[in-house]
Structures are given as structure tokens and as C-alpha cells.
Amino acid sequence: MSTLILVGHDGRQADPGLDRLVGAAAALGEPVDLLLVGHGLEAVAASVAHLAGVRDLLCADAPALAEARAETLARQLHAVGAPYRRLLAAHGLGHRAALARAAGLFGNNFLADLVALPEADRCVRPLYAGAVLATVQPQGERLIATLRASAFAPCGTAAAPAPCRAVPAVAADPRSRLLGRSAVGGSRPELAQARIVVAGGRGVGSAEAMGLVEALADHLGAAVGASRAAVDAGYAAAETQVGQTGKTVAPALYLAAGISGAIQHVAGIKDAKLIVAINKDPDAPIFSVADLGLVGDLFEVLPALKAALPAQA
């Protein structure tokens, strides 16, 4: 009745939020193992070995797995996952593709974006852009699913590291290959894991004016977000999009400037602890979900906030 978690990593350290996935799985009171796939995994293994609740690290290390795509990850999960009741990973495009393919190999169903695991055979996932939370029972021999890491509490740190155990590496699936990689530069926090997010919408008006949002975010040590309307208009980069068709966030503070509050955007921020909305339209839908709302011109409010609030490291 154990759990295997597929670890996302950049070759040096695990993706943010792994401690929350381990916390979610460990809360079920059953053994938790981590699967690392790649080449030269020593640094990654060292970065996750002290997570409390982890029993073993399974390392599939081979040169052919250095850039493992979804098809190859699915093969690796299928090769080592038979003894496990649950196969989990952080919700995201790559892992969602990999686990869905692994579910097909197992003849199992697949569930995406779980936000709670109240029992060993029950899970909770959002429906209808987050308007409904459904408790579902997975069908088949095992639960294969991606989890919204921000919805779970992190695990602690173990005194002794979990042992690393080598497992046979599968042959890379040749049907897809990496052609290139485009990384977002800068020192801002990763959007999905940030404690504070400052986001701009259509009301920002231009890519140049989006600099006000970015300036406040940098002042607060926050991540920069954007609505789909702002991204479509070219005001912000696609990787900053928050919402049903973008990233789901659950920060301690979400500050929305010039965002009207379409249901697709609200679906991506509903788990934020505190939502602050700034909009010059008093009837903007964002005010119905905001904890604090300010009717005002963002071009006046954002500089004033930056001047009044202390800078964060």
C-alpha cells in the first residue's frame, strides 16, 4: 500500500513543492518512495534525501535518460511502479502527460490536479473551473494522479537521509525529442510556489505599464502574474499567466491590479490566503472574491504602495 512520487528536477535540485507532495502522501501513513529519472542524479538525490517520510530513493540513471520526455517517463513508471498503490507527481504539463501515459500502460484511470487526499481510497479534485470540489474514488488497482502541490502542507526534515537504490533504466522512447529549451531569466520566485504574487490584467494597458506591476513585485520579493487578457494583449509573458488555462497559485498574498476577475482567472487564485484587488471599476467581478478591494487607478495606487510598504528580501 505504498506510494511512489515522480520527482521533477533540473539536473541539480528537485522542483519546488516536492516536500508538499511527500507531506500529502506521508499523511496517509504508508511508505513513500521517490523516483528520480535522468543522468548524473547525485546532486538531485542529495537535495531530497532528507525529506521526512521518504523511505527510499529509486534512481534510474542513464545517459539516454538525461532529457527524458513524457513517453520515456511513462515507460520508467510502468517498469518500477507495479508494487505501488499510488503513483503521484506534481501537477504540470510534463508530469500530466507522463502519468496519463503510464496509466494507459497499466490499464488504469488517471486523475489530474488533486487538491486533497482525505483517505487512502478517496481524493478531491476541482471541477467547473474550481466552482465545485468533487470527492472521487479511483477505479482500478492503483491511484495514478497529479497533485496541486500548493494545496498540501510540506513535510519536515528527517535526521538521516533516505537510501538511494539504483533501478534498471528503460530505453528512451524515440517518438519525441528535445529540440531546445527556453528559460525565463531573473531572480523572482517561481510563480506557482511564491509566497506573494503581484499580477496585472487588461487594465494595465501596455507592456511598458506592466513595469509598475513588476516594480512592486520586485520591491516585495514577489512573483509576477498576469491574466489571460494581459498575456493575449502582449503585456506579459505567457509563463506568467494565472488561471484555468495558466498556472494555479496559492500564495499568502495575491494582489490583482487591473484584473476584472473572469471565472477562468478566479479558478487559478481561489486558494490564495488573501486576495487584494485594485480596479477603477467598482462593479468588477474580482471584488466579489477579494478579501480587500480598492476602487482606484492602478497607476496611482501601485507607486503609492511601493512607497509605503517596506522592501522584502
Rank of each mutant, 00 (worst) to 15 (best):
P16S: 07
A120M: 03
G107F: 01
A90N: 13
L294Y: 06
L28G: 05
L274V: 06
L28H: 06
L191E: 01
L212C: 11
R202M: 11
A233Q: 08
A103P: 02
L309Y: 02
V231H: 02
V213F: 02
G201Q: 01
A199L: 12
A250E: 01
A183Y: 10
L88P: 08
I263L: 08
T146W: 04
E214R: 15
S176G: 10
S176A: 15
I259E: 14
Q241R: 13
P16I: 12
L302W: 11
A79W: 02
L298I: 06
D283C: 12
Q76G: 07
L220M: 12
A262M: 10
I5P: 04
I275E: 04
C123Q: 12
A102H: 08
V184Q: 12
G296Y: 02
R12I: 07
Q137H: 09
L111K: 12
R148P: 00
P63F: 03
G201L: 06
H50V: 01
G40L: 04
G81Q: 14
E208V: 10
R202P: 07
V198P: 08
L179S: 10
L302G: 11
A192L: 00
L4V: 02
L93N: 15
A64F: 04
E214K: 13
E30Y: 07
T248Q: 07
L298R: 06
E42F: 03
A159V: 07
E30Q: 10
A90Q: 11
V213G: 05
L127S: 14
A252V: 14
P154G: 03
P282G: 01
A120C: 06
V213D: 04
S187Q: 15
G29F: 08
G11T: 02
A160G: 12
I196S: 00
D283W: 06
H91T: 15
A308V: 06
F110I: 02
D61G: 08
S182H: 15
A153H: 04
L178A: 13
T245Y: 01
